[in-house]
């Protein structure tokens, strides 16, 4: 797949001396969904603002579809659609007029048929003549997406698309993103909800204190960094780990079973040895299951390590 966005060594230092970005490198492949995960103040919005032209970088280069985003800003920005974090809309305008305005800004001739198609994709079509101020929060967010999509961008930035949105709307948003991916749009979304990244993204980038800590395939990331646990249920519950098994990293579960922690990626997990030692210790197995740590555990570990 071709690289559609290339960010190289981008830094941002504000006038007061605060360094919001410390040399960010990022490559985005065409058609993928990348979730940029990070705590508040990590630099997610600053990075997006710089790529979209709202803020200027202190140093570094950005190319969008091969165009330098400063020198060939018209060609570069034509490829980008931005859905901002805040619901910034003209309250007195109708949905249709507002979207028409956005399409015009991107230099496209008026095409109401295309706009209506987009409104249908976002289940907004029946609201097209409503004033924005009469819409619910969720609908307003859809208007923002419609405005970002109306010039047919190749890359869509969603800055915390589900911040402050109820569970049902959040699921809706995930569906919309999945539909967009089907139409070939590359999606970059920022979030601090880990489950959102897990549910939507192909790749996940973790950003903290203005630095990208890692960017990896979601599954690989969970697998690589994931600690696994083997849950051992016993016929007869126990209170403490038997002496004979003391050299294993074991703990007793609430139900009186055993929990064995191991690294799934290590060549030798030690499970075979443990199972035979259990029998020798006179313990009888009732059931076995494994549990893998969630992205949230990984994320918390990463950010903690960075802070340390």
């Amino acid at each position: 797949m071709a690289t559609v966005l290339n960010v190289k060594g981008v830094t941002k230092t504000y006038e007061g001396g605060h360094q919001a970005l410390k040399g960010v490198d990022l490559e985005i492949e065409e058609g993928e969904i990348l979730a940029l995960l990070g705590p508040n103040g990590a630099g997610k919005t600053t990075l997006i603002s710089i790529i979209c032209g709202i803020a200027t970088a202190t140093s570094g280069t950005i190319t969008v579809g091969g165009y330098d985003h400063a020198r060939d800003y018209r060609a570069a920005r034509n490829l980008i659609g931005l859905v901002p974090q805040e619901i910034n809309l003209e309250p007195f305008e109708t949905v249709m007029n507002s979207v028409r305005f956005s399409r015009g800004l991107f230099g496209k001739p008026r095409d109401d048929a295309r706009i209506e198609e987009i409104l249908k994709l976002l289940s907004l079509h029946d609201k097209k003549d409503n004033r924005i101020m009469t819409l619910s929060g969720g609908m307003k967010r859809r208007v923002l997406i419609a405005k970002a999509l109306c010039h047919d961008p190749k890359i869509l930035f969603l800055d915390e698309p589900t911040a402050g949105v109820d569970v049902e709307l959040r699921k809706d948003m995930w569906e919309i993103v999945a539909r967009l991916k089907e139409t070939g749009v590359t999606v970059i979304l920022t979030t601090h909800y880990i489950e959102e990244a897990e549910a939507m993204a192909d790749r996940i980038g973790v950003i903290s204190k203005g630095e990208i800590l890692l960017v990896e395939e979601k599954d690989a990331l969970i697998k690589r960094l994931g600690q696994k646990e083997l849950l051992i249920e016993l016929d007869a519950p126990i209170d403490a780990v038997p002496e004979a098994l003391a050299h294993y990293p074991l703990s007793v579960s609430d139900e009186g079973g055993l929990i064995y922690s191991y690294d799934a990626q290590a060549g030798h997990t030690g499970i075979t040895g443990l199972l035979s030692d259990l029998r020798e210790a006179g313990l009888h197995l009732a059931d076995l299951s494994t549990r893998q740590s969630s992205l949230e555990d990984i994320f918390v570990d990463l950010v903690k390590e960075d802070a340390a």
């Binding site: 805040e86 910034n88 809309l89 305005f101 991107f106 230099g107």
Partner: peptide, 13 residues
């Protein structure tokens, strides 16, 4: 004031 200026700044104009 209402924040829609982001559109002007991110548009190819």
């Amino acid at each position: 004031f209402i924040g829609t200026v982001y559109e002007l700044l991110s548009a190819p104009i």
